Amino acid sequence: MNKKYPDEFKQEAVRQVVEKGYSVPDVYKRIGISDKSIYYWVNKA
Rank of each mutant, 00 (worst) to 15 (best):
M1W: 05
M1L: 05
N2P: 12
K3A: 07
K3M: 01
K3L: 05
K3N: 04
K3F: 01
K3T: 01
K4G: 02
Y5K: 08
P6G: 04
D7N: 11
D7K: 15
E8F: 07
E8M: 10
F9P: 09
F9Q: 13
K10T: 05
Q11G: 13
E12A: 04
E12P: 01
E12D: 03
A13C: 14
A13L: 05
A13K: 04
R15T: 09
Q16D: 13
Q16V: 07
Q16G: 06
V17H: 05
V17D: 04
V17N: 02
V18Y: 11
V18A: 14
K20R: 14
K20M: 12
G21A: 03
G21Y: 01
G21C: 01
V24I: 15
V24S: 07
V24H: 10
D26S: 12
D26V: 09
V27L: 00
Y28Q: 07
Y28R: 11
R30W: 01
R30M: 03
I31G: 00
I31R: 05
G32W: 15
I33K: 13
I33G: 08
S34L: 02
D35M: 13
D35H: 12
D35Y: 11
D35P: 11
K36V: 07
K36W: 00
K36N: 06
S37H: 09
I38F: 02
Y40T: 09
Y40K: 15
Y40F: 09
V42P: 10
V42F: 09
V42T: 10
N43P: 05
N43F: 08
N43S: 15
K44L: 06
K44C: 04
A45P: 00
A45M: 05
